[in-house]
Amino acid sequence: MIPSIPQSRFLTTAYAAYIVVFFVFLALPLLVVAGFAFNDSQFPSLPWEGFTWNWFFGDERPMIGVFHERSILRAIGTSILVAVLVSALAVAVGLSNAFLFNRYKFRGQGILYVLMLLPLVIPGIVLGISILVFSSRVANGLWDGYRIDIEALRPGLLLVILGQFSFITTIATLVIGARLQKFDRTLEEAALNLGAGRLVAIRTITLPYLAPAMVGAFVVSFLMSFENFNTTLMLVGSDAPLTIAMFDRLKEGSTPLLNAVSLLLMLGSSCLALIMIFFQKK
């Protein structure tokens, strides 16, 4: 059924109703989370005790708001740091991969491409433990053999970054590769024809063309890193990123503080998404 095929009124109405119900289903949990961020109560649940901004700006116990809660702010900082590093790395390697698969033909390319896709079909938690096991064994080996202690190889931010990078790179490669696929190579040839060198042609013609995809890949990587839970859970050390910090708090019982953090997260990621859409349109 498409609009040009006549259908009974009942069917079209029922279909539209289903879509409405679906979107209510999608929106409900988020609306609830957002709503209770303003509940003047110790618990994010009914009854509604009145409206308050305290879970954002409050600075007195028991209502300490997000902006005065050190541990949450630090976790947000950690998350941003990790996400920026992971995204930058993923976009850089993704760009290189995209060129490799688009511009070169070599033996084993097909197999390598499948291998490149594999991180998408490995459960995140398995990625996490495999890196954990490997790095710990390397660290133990170095200690046993040479008495060298490399703290970075123990659970901590470096491992978190590497763990997230290991699968986010695949996504960055796909996003950038898709755009490079659409690139008309005669443009590059035209640049060469007009006197540019090969690298100059890529820098002045191809990379600007890829810019929206690179921004897109960066934003997607950033969001995926920021949200990542499974891989991070296995590799995290003492300074936890936000999702882990929130998870630990949630296990102990929730206060509307978590709702307030969540609402900020929603706003933040919406902004990022808007930036991405803006760049994609250009």
């Binding site: 879509i19 979107f23 999608l26 929106a27 409900l28 949990p29 988020l30 609306l31 609830v32 989370v33 209770f36 618990f43 994010p44 649940s45 009914l46 969001l223 920021f226 949200e227 839970f229 936000l242 999702t243 929130m246 998870f247 949630l250 929730s254 978590l258 709702n259 969540s262 997260l265 929603m266 990621s269 919406s270 990022l272 998404a273 859409i277």
Partner: peptide
Amino acid sequence: LFLMCLVPFWVSELVRTFGWMILLRETGI
């Protein structure tokens, strides 16, 4: 509509799950 499908997934899975907890638990909505 497509955008509305994407929006919920820009926020962490933790937040979404938290939302369902608020809806479903004994003292929930």
